[in-house]
Nucleic acid binder design. Sequence first.
DNA 1: AAGGGTGATGGCCGTGGCTG
DNA 2: CAGCCACGGCCATCACCCTT
Length: 391
Amino acid sequence: MQNEKRDQLVVSKKTYKKSNELINAMGKGTALSQKLFAIGMQNIKVDETNNVVATIYGTELRKMFKSSSGSLYEHIEALCDRQIKGATIFDWNLLMKDKENGKIEAHQVVTDASFKNGTLTLRYNNSLTDKIVNLQKDYTVLSLADTLSLKSVYSLRLYEMLKSAYDYQRAVTKMQGEMVFEYKLTELKLELGIINSGGSKEIKTELEKEFPDYDRIDELAEKTGQTKYKEYKIFNRNVLSKAKEELNKKTSLQVDYEPIKNGRKTEGIRFFVTKKDAEAVEKTAEVAVNKDEILDDLIDLMHDDFKLREIRELAELAEYDYDKIKKSYDYMNSYSSPVDVPIAFMKDCIKNEYYNNKTTKFRPKSSNSFNNFEQRNDYDFEELEKKLLDN
DNA sequence: AAGGGTGATGGCCGTGGCTG
DNA sequence: CAGCCACGGCCATCACCCTT
């Protein structure tokens, strides 16, 4: 458990830089490939052919993903395997506008990937090298912990885009507080990789214009069979509201949005972004860690009598109040007759606090009745209460 | 009548538990 | 320890209803 805490610490303070050009490039990638990119930034070097090479050790991967499942390595391997059908890291492509000639070019981000002897090596396209290393300006500092905590690839992309836009705006206007960003729906879908050029020349030429006709791109995309999230309501439900919820819960950004309407039809999205104060974020993170810790303690305590699933259920019921569960458990073990259905007994006991009947002297009324408790400071209660109020 | 919200349904896939 | 299977979560789609 000590180790887990430290692992948490290893991730929590780390940041990585990503150039705004990369962030705002349109492209498709999986959540895992984005995360691997973020982790890879911790340890990069440029090889003799001017490619950026990132190496990550398997043990680090486990720490980062807080994964203990045996299949993590398998998944990484599959991701690196060109032969495998389905998404691999090589499917990660970016559309970028060349600054000089204004042409849109598609770049494969990762050109080479191997996972050998527990070490993952990623080689990035050398046309991206100057967008990855030695960033002097036009970059955004992103929190590794924030990035890794996000599940949906859309949340991840939105986090990067909005953080980038926010920091940029703040640097330019020297203003703090809430800021507003507007995107056309199609523009947003392009950025999120929901629609892409799909090799279509027409879409590419449209994008090369200074003011692309997004309606036309929309039509063209539909013609090439890209109908994903065609209806706004679905896009809203599965992408926007999910991302908003996730960002607000897990990252340093506080996000809200509203549709920009033309008559009935939604044509764009207006985002409102503020930064949560750093303290608030750490608080919620801490509660999450405490939950895991409490669960671990409970497993140590009760794994002889209950399955993991049951313990989790009890923990939820008791709102991760370790004392409550321990008292119920002790009460059950000291019960005069054998208990038929332990799980039901425990549930009832937690709900109705039976243990107080016998052990009235344990009833803490005054705040200095600490000594009657197994030493466990009341810090957890405060945190939990805060968390409850937040939700 | 079209756009948008919400719930139900079914397919797909990753995870974790169970068994040999 | 490996392999299989069940479960749950995610996502797309449909159906139905409400708003504009």
